[in-house]
Amino acid sequence: MAEALTIRTRSGFGLATITARKGVAAGAIGQALGLVAPAGPVWTAAEGVMLLGTGPGVWLAHAETVSPFWGDGLRQRLAGLAAVSDQSGACVVLRLSGAGARIALRRGASIDLDPAAFRPDAVVVTAIAHIGVTFWQVDAVPTYDIAVPRSFIGSFHHWLDVTAAAIRLPVPASGEA
């Protein structure tokens, strides 16, 4: 049956890649930023900043609202601990919410999103429609944020719009559990 799916484009956020220097553990990075830096593909958050584990010793820092020079500030706080590259302009972040959000991502990504297998704090770096994306679950509605490289956003919407239309159809179709 038709499943609810809302899609909106987020704005005003900051994104930055943090890569630990050799031998620097997640703990030291987290301490410098005032939260627990995850060691695996999950996220943690404190005071408006999220740290998303995107690789071994690599995180994507995400903040709701930032100044344009947020990246420089991060670099200073992590001096000697990590490399920092501002990516605030690199991605369009879409927020997908509703029961249909899980179906849409499942159709796009070869990732097990069933609540039995998918941690609510999981971070996924993968490909949807041949486009490299990063997504994470925001709440249990479920709501997901998905970061799409800016140059690909038109093609991503081509996939998402067609997929969302099928999910919203008021016709019964098997496989939409």
Binding site: A20, R21, K22, G23, A82, S85, Q87, S88, G89, A90
Partner: peptide, 13 residues
């Protein structure tokens, strides 16, 4: 080597 690398192709116009 203690060296980090990241693509910023999408960050800059």
């Amino acid at each position: 080597l203690d060296v980090q690398a990241v693509s910023v192709s999408e960050q800059w116009a």
